[in-house]
């Protein structure tokens, strides 16, 4: 085998890198610019709808980690009252099996992905912390009826091509045009 390309391969490679040099960067400045995540995102939390929960503990049985702790007592109207529902999101691997197994549509995946804390114990979500509220909205994972209400995910595939999301090379025009949110 001979070395017969006379450096042409390297020159072609240099041309490719130069082509990419003139392309706009694809990274974005995270805390200022954010992507719209998937409609089905399995975020770092679970969202629990109290009114629908019957305390059947199917979620606890389906959890691979044995991570959902649920304690109930018999209520007055032939129902179970949930005394304690606790999820250690530090142990949770967000597989979504609990959401899929819930027969009463009371448990959802959350949409948050910014749940870093300073203490591990703050990752343990109790009953109150799990409840559905204004800023704790469920994601569309396994629930197509919720999914259609959420904004569309931004895709790198359509980067620079649709919706006027034009990137530019020069930094001084960056502020006006960059960012996908």
């Amino acid at each position: 085998m001979r070395f017969e390309r006379y450096g042409i391969g390297i020159i072609k490679g240099l041309m490719v890198t130069m082509k990419n040099f003139l392309r706009p960067p694809i990274t974005l400045q995270y805390p200022e610019e954010k992507l719209i995540t998937s409609r089905r995102i399995r975020g770092n939390e679970l969202v629990w709808q109290v009114s629908k929960c019957t305390g059947c503990a199917t979620c606890a049985k389906s959890c691979p980690q044995g991570n959902i702790e649920i304690v109930t007592h018999l209520g007055t109207e032939n129902n179970y009252v949930v005394d304690k529902l606790q999820v250690d999101t530090g142990k949770c691997m967000f597989c979504g099996l609990c959401v899929e197994s819930c027969p009463y549509e009371a448990l959802f995946m959350g949409r948050s992905y910014e749940r870093a804390t300073y203490r591990r114990r703050e990752l343990v979500l109790s009953k109150e912390a799990l409840e559905l509220s204004e800023d704790r909205q469920p994601s569309g994972y396994f629930y197509p009826r919720i999914e259609v209400l959420l904004p569309r995910q931004t895709l790198l595939l359509y980067w620079d091509r649709e919706d006027g999301q034009k990137l530019c090379w020069f930094p001084w025009r960056k502020k006006a045009n960059r960012g996908r949110r």
Partner: peptide, 12 residues
């Protein structure tokens, strides 16, 4: 510039 070559921004 290496950042630009690698289609990212580099320290900014």
């Amino acid at each position: 510039l290496i950042g630009r070559f690698q289609v990212r921004l580099g320290p900014n």
